[in-house]
Amino acid sequence: MASGITLSGVFKRFGATEVIKGIDLAIEPGEFVVLVGPSGCGKSTLLNLVAGLETLTSGDIRIGAQVVNDVPPRDRDIAMVFQSYALYPTKSVRQNITFGMQTRHVPRDRQEAALDEFSRLLQIDGLLDRKPGQLSGGQRQRVAMGRALVRQPEVFLFDEPLSNLDAKLRIEMRTEIKKLHQRLGKTVVYVTHDQIEAMTLASRIAVMDNGHIRQFAQPHEIYEDPVDLFVAGFMGSPPMNMLPGKLARDGTARAVAVEGNGAPPILFPLPGRLAARLDEPDGHEVVLGLRPEAIFAAGTELPGPDRFVFERTVGVVEPTGPDTMLVFAIGPVEAIARVRPGDAPDPGTAFSFEVDMTKAKLFDAASGLALGARTGGR
């Protein structure tokens, strides 16, 4: 049975610098939670606090029902996988995996059974007599994971374990980690700065910034209903288009007026359900958020409600394989649309874009908080 993790009022200071600023977080038993955010946001420090590698300034950390503030790392029933693999270079794969069990005086037959099970599971059973220097990066990471798995702890902690791998290996290892979690059902806390990694692995994501958790929710909620401009801009590749404007009227309907650098403003009509949730008056400064996939070539998608067509000159065309990104100026910013390769025009040509306004997000320009949001997500 996996153990949950509860953080209550957790602070961490290094000297006068406050790195973790009052975090409350409840992770359910068996969950795969990803801590994601830019470099320096505090995610690795938070993981190290759970592991016991750093001491709390204040607050409580519980693993299961036990408060572990003063419990040493070896007694917390956790296993950690690091970015650097941290393998013993002079020991074989077999010795690296079983070393921890030997120091805990686990009986030899149990050591061999665990080694056999997890080396086959990780597909490294043919590498047991090699040294780490004879392995590829992906193989070394599998050995590091095997060393953690044989402990069979209640909680696994991963600190950017794939960041040293090339793109193809990252995708492969991501899949292996997800399979392992589905098979073992243990609680996992996983740190990364890669938001695609977070979206594909997590049952819930904690988006961190400057020592705070901005939003803690399921991946689809983080992507579809970000609570503020930071989350909206950080999660997504390419990022959400952020168009500064003001609330206005298009006849009797509510809209967002986006200035056109000397040209008349573009009035983006707001869907009725979003408009009905707004308390802000006309003229209120907002930011209109549109994901690139919400902007496409006019007339290429099935008809739907709340569509809006406008024309702009395409500045840059970026083929990515299955999609092509079109970069164009709208108001004071550059925006990105995602179109099918066959729909892409030449750079420098006028192009008719269609927007699915049912996917529009609205944020207060001053506070950055979502307006008319359906969910809180915190």
Score class of each variant (00 low, 15 high):
Met1Glu: 15
Leu7Arg: 03
Ser8Tyr: 14
Val10Ser: 02
Arg13Asp: 10
Glu18Val: 08
Lys21Cys: 12
Asp24Ile: 05
Leu25Phe: 03
Ile27Asn: 07
Ile27Arg: 01
Phe32Pro: 03
Val33Asp: 02
Pro38Asn: 04
Gly52Lys: 02
Leu53Trp: 04
Thr55Lys: 06
Thr55His: 09
Leu56Ser: 04
Ile61Asn: 03
Ile61Trp: 04
Val68Tyr: 05
Pro73Leu: 00
Ile78Ser: 00
Val81Thr: 09
Phe82Ser: 01
Leu87Phe: 09
Thr90Cys: 08
Lys91Trp: 13
Gln95Asp: 15
Thr98Gly: 04
Met101Trp: 05
Met101Lys: 05
Gln102Leu: 04
Thr103Leu: 10
His105Ile: 00
Arg108Met: 09
Glu112Lys: 00
Glu112Arg: 08
Phe118Ser: 07
Ser119Arg: 01
Arg120Tyr: 11
Gly126Ile: 09
Arg130Lys: 10
Gly133Glu: 09
Gln139Asp: 14
Ala144Ser: 13
Gly146Lys: 03
Glu154Asp: 14
Glu154Val: 05
Val155Lys: 02
Leu165His: 10
Leu165Trp: 07
Ala167Met: 08
Met173Lys: 06
Lys179Gln: 14
Lys179Glu: 15
Leu180Gly: 01
Tyr190Leu: 03
His193Phe: 11
Asp194Gly: 08
Ile196Tyr: 14
Ile205Glu: 09
Met208Asn: 05
Gly211Arg: 03
His212Tyr: 15
Ala217Gly: 10
Pro219Ser: 14
Glu221His: 12
Glu221Gly: 04
Glu224Tyr: 07
Asp225Tyr: 15
Val227Arg: 11
Phe230Gln: 00
Phe234Val: 00
Lys246Trp: 13
Ala253Glu: 15
Arg254Met: 08
Glu259Ala: 09
Gly262Glu: 05
Ala263Glu: 15
Pro264Ala: 10
Pro265Gly: 07
Pro269His: 12
Leu274Thr: 14
Ala275Phe: 13
Ala275Tyr: 08
Pro281Gln: 04
His284Ile: 04
Glu285Arg: 10
Val287Gly: 00
Leu290Gln: 01
Pro292His: 06
Ala294Leu: 07
Ala297His: 01
Gly299Asp: 06
Gly299Tyr: 14
Thr300Met: 04
Pro303Thr: 12
Asp306Glu: 15
Val309His: 10
Phe310His: 03
Glu311Val: 08
Gly315Arg: 12
Val316Asp: 01
Val316Cys: 06
Glu318Pro: 07
Pro319Asn: 13
Thr320Ser: 06
Thr320Val: 11
Thr324Trp: 03
Thr324Ile: 08
Met325Gly: 12
Val327Met: 08
Phe328Met: 02
Phe328Val: 10
Phe328Ala: 02
Glu334Trp: 13
Ile336Asn: 02
Val339Asn: 02
Gly342Pro: 01
Gly342Gln: 08
Asp343Leu: 05
Pro345Asp: 05
Pro347Leu: 04
Thr349Ser: 12
Ala350Gln: 09
Ala350Glu: 13
Glu354Asp: 14
Val355Ile: 15
Val355Phe: 10
Val355Ala: 12
Thr358Phe: 13
Ala360Met: 08
Lys361His: 15
Leu362Met: 06
Phe363Asp: 06
Asp364Cys: 10
Ala366Met: 03
Gly368Ser: 01
Ala370Glu: 04
Gly372Asn: 01
Gly376Ser: 11
Arg378Glu: 15
